[in-house]
Amino acid sequence: MRNIINNAYNTSNANGASTANNAHNGTTNSDFAVSVTGLTKAFGDVNVLQGVDFTITRGEIFALLGSNGAGKTTTINILSTLLKPDAGNVTVCGFDALLHAEKVRENISLTGQFAAVDTMLTGRENVVLIAKLRGIPKSSEVADKLLADFGLTDAANRLVSTYSGGMTRRLDIAMSLVGTPSVIFLDEPTTGLDPEARLEVWRMVKNLANTGTTILLTTQYLDEAEQLADRIAILHAGKIIANGTLQELKKLLPPAKREYIEKQPSLEDIFLAITHNTRSECDERDEQVKHSKEVA
């Protein structure tokens, strides 16, 4: 019920993101960036994946939703060639993940559940390292541009061990964009982030999708899937039990009842409002002084 009520406030946002992507998809609708059929994987006696099927269209944001241990990370690891499936077919950008793993790796980028950054290096050194490993000729120029895009120019020459959680995650994602891979896997990109950093990651994901990058993100936060995804699949007990747009998934439930409730601000609203005010007070003190003079 709570979700359905929330939707009323969020629809404008979610629709905005999906129209932008549909425009980009255009004629390539039949061309899948990722195609998974009959995927199974067991660790010992535990059957983590028991026949997973889904496809992701080029340029779309696809959310894999599931509780802890549902097999989201296992799926991502198989797609990014880190794990071999027991059975099933996995194609990424037209390449079979088992037969042409090297080709798949050239086209993808993985942002794991925990920021995979080298804390003993500076932010800049981290990005340059990835650029060198990807064989990009002007690695330091690429690094400077990405660091600027992610607001890390000032911190670029500091050791990553001094970064905040949000900065580390931004660097982590910046590192994933080196060489502009066409498919990006984001495994729980906002787990463990504060609300502000979480919104920042959401903005980055939306911007990324606007450039035509295909994004597969896993999350256990339902609102994250609602906010970002063009399509949502629910992974439960090793199988995809639902797959579709938010509107399609809503049809699975009986039509929403109309209830009148007072809109209470959530704790997140309050937190963001207060912290944002404090920040702008610092930044715009001069302007406020001017303004109060005018009023006087």
């Binding site: 690891n77 990014s80 060639t81 880190l82 090297e102 790796r105 050239e106 993808i108 980028s109 993985l110 794991g112 559940q113 925990f114 920021a115 995979a116 950054v117 080298d118 804390t119 990835i130 490993l133 990807r134 590192m175």
Partner: peptide
Amino acid sequence: EKGLFARFNSMPI
């Protein structure tokens, strides 16, 4: 542990 192996191994290196 930090996932750097996973990152490197998912790259064409």
